[in-house]
């Protein structure tokens, strides 16, 4: 049994190399252990006091979001709200204020739930995870990182130190929309993120990714045919059809597979519409769910 509070990255990496499991906010790890889903790891290293993990750095080509940045910060940070808005939309929907205070983007990513809210936004924004050990670091695409529900390909001694996002070109916008039955303390029934760059009225690039309809977050394939076209009713119908067609949802107590398959198309279309509105310069407050009136009145 050991519990260390690391104050530097090197200290954390040394503990992890010696077999300790990182704990950031503990909002998955402690809650899951108390629910009896797994035993609390005997060796733990708290990484929530490492200042270098709690930074958002804008570089010439890419922006680095430290793995220790909390959802509370993501939903209000100017860099995220202005440039990577879908992440702010997602962070603002997580749990309640207290969940958002402790919960981190690194914990969300490494917990690897197919219902995680920051996942689809990160995918459409082209994020890679930076994984660090005491002997080096590498970058890995999120499609390679997530291998199944609650499973990832990182080694036990790799700490996720940051999420790296290419800076957005001009005329870009993104949005994350989540189907929820109430406005707080929810888990996505389904969710969709879209990132769009416009060239005049036409689509210059578009990516859409889906939450809670497959064993991992998935990106919708085959949207290249939309490039050079406007985001009109025909394009939106194609997006909805592709999303519903590529989803492989399960039935559980929250929703049936058929309901999820239908609503993921609706959410994908709404995310794309909101992303395009933001790309054309319109401000839609975070989270976009509120502007769209999703979820019962609070």
């Amino acid at each position: 049994m050991s519990f260390t509070i690391a104050t530097s990255l090197d200290e954390a990496l040394a503990s992890i190399a010696a077999g300790a499991r990182p704990i950031a906010g503990g909002s998955d790890l402690v809650v899951g252990a108390r629910q009896g889903k797994f035993d609390l790891p005997a060796e733990l290293v708290a990484i929530d006091r490492i200042e270098s993990l709690a930074t958002i750095d804008v570089g010439a080509d890419e922006t680095s979001i430290g793995s220790g940045v909390t959802h509370s910060r993501l939903m209000e940070d100017g860099v995220i709200v202005d440039n990577f808005t879908a992440i702010a939309d997602a962070a603002a929907l997580v749990g309640s204020p207290s969940t958002r205070n402790v919960g981190t983007i690194g914990g969300n990513v490494m917990n690897s739930s197919p219902a995680m809210d920051t996942g689809a936004p990160l995918v459409v924004l082209g994020a890679e995870a930076e994984l660090t050990t005491s002997s080096g670091r590498r970058r890995v695409g999120l499609d390679e990182l997530w291998t199944g529900p609650g499973q990832h390909s990182a080694a036990a001694d790799e700490l996720c130190t940051a999420l790296l996002l290419p800076n957005r070109p001009a005329n870009s916008g993104s949005a994350y929309v989540r189907l929820e039955y109430r406005r707080a303390m929810e888990i996505a029934v389904v969710g969709a993120a879209a990132a769009i760059t416009l060239d005049g009225d036409n689509i210059d690039s578009i990516r859409v990714a889906l939450t809670a309809v497959a064993p991992t977050i998935i990106e919708v394939a085959g949207l290249d045919s939309l490039v050079g076209r406007p985001l009109d009713d025909a394009s939106l119908a194609e997006i909805a059809e592709a999303a519903s067609g590529q989803a492989t949802p399960i039935s559980d107590l929250r929703a049936s597979d058929a309901y999820r398959r239908h609503t993921i198309g609706v959410m994908a279309r709404r995310a794309a519409e909101a992303a395009a509105r933001r790309a054309s310069g319109e401000t839609i407050a975070v989270p976009v769910n509120r502007a769209l009136g999703i979820g019962a009145a609070s």
């Binding site: 519990f3 704990i23 503990g26 909002s27 402690v30 733990l44 969940t99 402790v102």
Partner: peptide
């Protein structure tokens, strides 16, 4: 913070 689900040591 939800203290029921937060480790005292942390």
């Amino acid at each position: 913070v939800n203290s029921c689900s937060y480790l005292a040591v942390q």
